[in-house]
């Protein structure tokens, strides 16, 4: 355990010489960008899939039921296979050009993965609202859409939000998998530093601290949002 005796020096080497901290920061920037766009793609896909699945329950349209079958397949496949395998398939299937933007690659891969989980979170949130709420709205003459948007969804959001926050936190962590397809994210950059210093543990510990800071920051922010939403809340 050589590094343990000279722990301060090892971290110094992993951070200062050759402005190595800039490597982490560029990796951090990449991870943040990928996470941000992946969340947006995930929410977009998630809403589309959830809307399809929820409306299939009452719709008679064959198109909606076809889309529902597709949505089920998507959710099953994404949730039932490892993200790393999904990334390797999507990357080699779609992004074969050498000049593809790494942010796009990472965001699309992670977003497609996250969408399945977001869809299930939204669907479960909507279905947790008692059927009587929909019936009450419809019995007053409100349309399905109006009842959904002005009565069901505001109630469902409260159930959805905490779970969605957890999903985003795990998404930030899981973007690290993207480093296997040569995207220079935080994990990858820590690896580069390690290959220069011949000591991989300090850079990975530094990367871990960055991830921890991001996830802690996000969970604090989500906690504040939840508190804010709970303010006007009564039973």
């Amino acid at each position: 355990m050589r590094w343990l005796s000279s722990i301060g020096e090892a971290f110094y080497n992993a951070w200062i010489p050759e402005k190595r901290y800039l490597a982490y920061l560029s990796g951090l920037r990449m991870t943040l960008l990928i996470s941000l766009f992946a969340v947006m793609i995930g929410i977009l896909i998630g809403i589309l899939i959830a809307v399809t699945r929820v409306s299939a329950r009452h719709s008679k349209s064959p198109l909606v039921h076809f889309l529902d079958q597709f949505a089920r397949l998507y959710v099953t496949v994404i949730r039932g296979t490892p993200m790393i395998v999904q990334i390797l398939i999507i990357y080699n299937l779609v992004f074969t050009s050498p000049n593809t933007n790494p942010v796009v690659v990472g965001a699309v891969c992670c977003g497609i993965n996250s969408g399945a989980y977001v869809a299930e979170i939204i669907r479960a949130g909507i279905e947790s609202i008692p059927i009587g709420q929909m019936e009450a709205g419809r019995s007053l003459g409100l349309s399905y859409r109006t009842t959904m948007t002005s009565i069901i969804l505001p109630q469902a959001i409260r159930n959805i939000l905490p779970a969605l926050g957890n999903e985003f936190i795990s998404l930030i962590k899981e973007t690290s998998v993207i480093s296997i397809i040569a995207v220079n994210d935080l994990t990858k950059m820590a690896g580069y530093v390690g290959s220069r210093t011949w000591d991989v543990i300090p850079p990975y510990v530094i990367a871990a601290l960055f991830y921890l800071a991001m996830t802690l920051g996000l969970s604090k922010a989500l906690g504040a949002v939840e508190k804010y939403l709970a303010k006007g809340q009564r039973k």
Partner: peptide, 10 residues
């Protein structure tokens, strides 16, 4: 009018 009232709780 329903057995379970079904008022909008929010």
């Amino acid at each position: 009018v329903f057995q379970q009232f079904n008022l909008f709780p929010m």
